[in-house]
Write a protein that binds this DNA or RNA. Structure first.
Lengths: 230, 230
DNA sequence: AGATGACTGGATAGCCTCAATCGGTCAAAG
DNA sequence: CTTTGACCGATTGAGGCTATCCAGTCATCT
């Protein structure tokens, strides 16, 4: 993703500069939308020359990709820090984190106001929710533990639908925190088979949840790294 | 909505003609989208002269309004015929009926491919789901019976989110019938507090559900009538 | 009376041209 | 070496003009 030459003088400073550029880009895109945000604008706001941006990314699109990947890393980190112990808590926190990230929401809803011409391109390719293949594995694991009844793959669809539905509530009445709680209880009730978990089940669920977030974190960070250094 | 003069020769024939026009309009709008469907097209397909259409509706928009209202009447009728006895069944059937009605789905999702310039206008004004005020009353009633725990108004939001989420599943993998089932069980699990209903509760729920559908039917039919006569 | 379709005028699509813009490059500067 | 910003050329969009289209009307016909 980044330039092909060897790393520059001070990798730390270089990274810091990359983040400064991404900060500027994020701000401008949220303010003016993707179409109206130019590389010159970003450069000026980041306090670098235009050419410098091209030392980090080959094209405008790659800059934007990096930006989204950074968002995802932060989103996952935000969720992980709160240490959810159940799927309900997990997705409640995901919903909350998504609600607080306008760029992610624009991405998921295909908001053409913000994304401009990227609307179709990114939406068709990228994953709909910032959860990749690990989600299926997680559901599988929960099923084995006995914390899910029914087909795990189908439950993944159900959960996706629930989170989506809450994110794009027509007039989003309750405050974000309340929406997150509602997601939590809805997911909880939907997944739980009714019966109690086997002994040690809760710990197993908590461990599986932690592992899922670790996997997400790892994957997200690797992707981001591709966008920040060779 | 319709013309101000007195009713024409044979009211029954007039009504049949109105429906023929709406049939033609529905077909064309689904095929070409709203923007590209002209009154001339509709007239030709319905086998009437253009002026005749204006004997029924004052403007193009009113024709479209009538069309949507007819869709809603049919949707509600379809659900009611299947006699759902619980909220779960009710919303599962709603989801199923919505999935089978492309115009309604386009409306709800704001599909600009189909709706063209109507996208914003209608979406901002009309109700998001074809469920009006009666829904709140229904939830209230269920709460009194004991079939809902928590704030009924909030549960309405939850249910709305669930149905929405399932309707616009990113890649809609399961077949429609399965989606309907999933909606049913999700709503069931979300609403019920776990404890058993009081004696006679099931009948009470079934009665409330029937009443809700009656109210919806009545309201929808009245609105449609406004679009078809005087 | 009800029904028709030719007609109107306001809006829109298409097209062209020209100027400004902006993504991307690279020779020169530091 | 890293960084810069003037420069290049493709793309975009404003402006203007014309031809077409189409919602809505109404004189005419049945």
């Amino acid at each position: 993703m980044a330039r092909t030459g060897r790393p520059p003088q001070d990798p730390a400073r270089r990274l810091e500069r990359a983040h400064r550029i991404l900060d500027a880009a994020t701000e401008l895109i949220l303010r003016w939308g993707y179409d109206k945000t130019t590389i010159d604008d970003v450069a000026q706001r980041a306090g670098v020359a235009k050419g410098t941006i091209y030392l980090h990314w080959k094209t405008r699109d790659e800059l934007f990709t990096a930006l989204l990947r950074r968002e995802r890393v932060r989103l996952v980190a935000e969720v992980r820090e709160r240490e959810p112990a159940t799927p309900g808590e997990l997705f409640g926190l995901f919903a909350l984190a998504l609600l607080g990230r306008p760029l992610m929401r624009a991405m998921l809803s295909g908001d053409s106001e913000v994304l401009g011409k990227l609307t179709r391109r990114k939406r068709d390719s990228g994953p709909r929710l910032p959860l990749g293949g690990p989600l299926d594995a997680y559901a599988e694991e929960l099923a084995e533990i006995g914390a899910i009844d029914g087909d795990p793959r189908e439950q993944v669809i159900v959960i996706t639908a629930i989170v989506y539905g809450f994110l794009f509530l027509p007039d989003a009445k309750p405050p974000d925190e309340r929406i997150a709680e509602l997601v939590t209880t809805t997911v909880e009730r939907t997944l739980s088979p009714g019966g109690p978990l086997p002994p040690g089940g809760e710990q197993a669920v908590a461990r599986a949840t932690r592992r899922f977030l670790d996997a997400m974190t790892e994957a997200a960070q690797q992707k981001l790294a591709l966008s920040l250094e060779v």
